[in-house]
Design a protein around this nucleic acid. Structure first.
Lengths: 107, 107
DNA sequence: TTAATACGCAACTTTTTGGTTGCATAAATA
DNA sequence: TATTTATGCAACCAAAAAGTTGCGTATTAA
């Protein structure tokens, strides 16, 4: 498909997936597919697709128990986004000054 | 179309757009559409589309001079992504402990 | 003034994405 | 055992995204 960071960015680029992820993060226990689906006005199959995308991005992991599949959020994966951001953080305030620092570090 | 943060996430979810943005950030001066296009194996019109997406996300702004359009990066806009991340940062290390803090602050 | 350059816009194609319905199956319950 | 429940998978559909070609136009250079 595509590289890891792109998968991650695409996963969080969808509002529904951000909502699902958020629900899982603040949940006090793992939620089954059906439990998640009940919180959204969308078919279970639609939700399943989104969860698969989140899983492939590493943002969600799943533990099967009997006929149920319990989903957990893995917020740690967002550290990758943070890493990506870090580089640009130096350019937030004064672009030219920070660019100088960046170039100096490169030498 | 869609909300601001979704536009922003979608803009950076595309590898080519991240590359364009990166090129603009590290450029020592504003780059024209043609100058940017020359750095990519894609038609100028294709690049123009991507730049428009970046512009609508607030990541790039454009200054017209004669027949040329000079593009600048606006990395500051990424602070919005950073804000979004901040909330989840508390869940990175120990999920349950941080959740407790979150819930307590909510009361 | 003529020619080249830098660009926007519109139309079109292909691929991806977001969502659906329908059906099969394994596990739990009556 | 019969039935309900939880789910996956495949097929399908519509809309959005990614990219192209072609053309018109304004600005600059010869």
């Amino acid at each position: 498909m595509q590289d890891k960071i792109t998968r991650l960015f695409k996963a969080i680029a969808d509002p529904t997936r951000r909502d699902i992820f958020h629900a899982l993060v603040i949940a006090t226990s793992a939620l089954s597919i059906t439990q998640i689906s009940n919180q959204f006005e969308m078919t279970r199959q639609g939700i399943t697709k989104h969860i698969k995308t989140l899983e492939e991005a590493g943002l969600v992991y799943i533990k099967s128990e009997g006929r149920e599949r319990f989903c957990n959020a893995n917020p740690k994966e967002l550290q990758e986004v943070n890493k990506w951001l870090k580089f640009y953080e130096q350019f937030w305030d004064d672009k030219l000054g920070s660019l100088g620092d960046y170039l100096n570090n490169k030498v």
